[in-house]
Design a protein around this nucleic acid. Structure first.
Lengths: 104, 104
DNA sequence: CATTAATGCAACCAATTGGTTGCATTAATG
DNA sequence: CATTAATGCAACCAATTGGTTGCATTAATG
């Protein structure tokens, strides 16, 4: 059940805010992303690492700064898994409805 | 940033397993769902409550048992938010690409 | 080449979380 | 109506988490 780690990574206000920022900002060094989150740079960095570990975000060293980028592939997996849940649930309800109607 | 609570709820192996089971099983009382998760019924119930609080799951009292159902609306919100992130990120990359090409 | 900017790493701590045991309660059943 | 099945609730505890402070390191810059 490794899947849960993706959602766990997104399941924190600060981490979600980081991901949001990444989706719209073009300049994104670790320093940029870590400011104005209401916590220290080191604290922000720890949260960023959680995103890295969950493969949501990718880091690349560029001289003295580190560039941050979103891993859309991971997001896509997370997204499609949720829609699969919805689909299965709806099918189940459909089947149940048919069953009830058939026995009328 | 209330959004994070949805992902936090899904971000635990046992809770995700509960949601998976709900998506395919037709009979779903609290007791049913709580068995064979590797933890006690009371432990499972606590996890179920997290899902309820995050509005992922809904409970309904039926006599001496409690019926559990998925809240697809919440799942849909979670799912569409993630695809929005992907979309924004892709747009950003597109814009960046155009900018680079224009300056060639 | 001294200074500063951008970063990483580790130790520490309070709060939260994931689980347990041990009850109590209330609805169905022989 | 005594028994059992299905459940809820609370206290407790170890492990994890979210954050801090205080360094060290290494690349750019005047």
């Amino acid at each position: 059940m490794i899947e849960a780690t993706i959602y766990k990574a997104l399941g924190d206000p600060i981490r979600l805010e980081i991901v949001k920022r990444l989706s719209v900002t073009s300049t994104s060094t670790v320093g940029d992303i870590s400011t104005n989150l209401g916590i220290t740079r080191q604290g922000a960095r720890k949260q960023l690492q959680v995103l890295v570990n969950a493969n949501v975000v990718h880091l690349e060293q560029c001289g003295r700064q580190t560039q941050v980028s979103l891993n859309t592939k991971t997001l896509q997996i997370a997204q499609s898994f949720i829609s699969q849940l919805e689909r299965k649930w709806d099918n189940r309800l459909e089947a149940l409805k048919n069953y009830v109607e058939a026995s009328d």
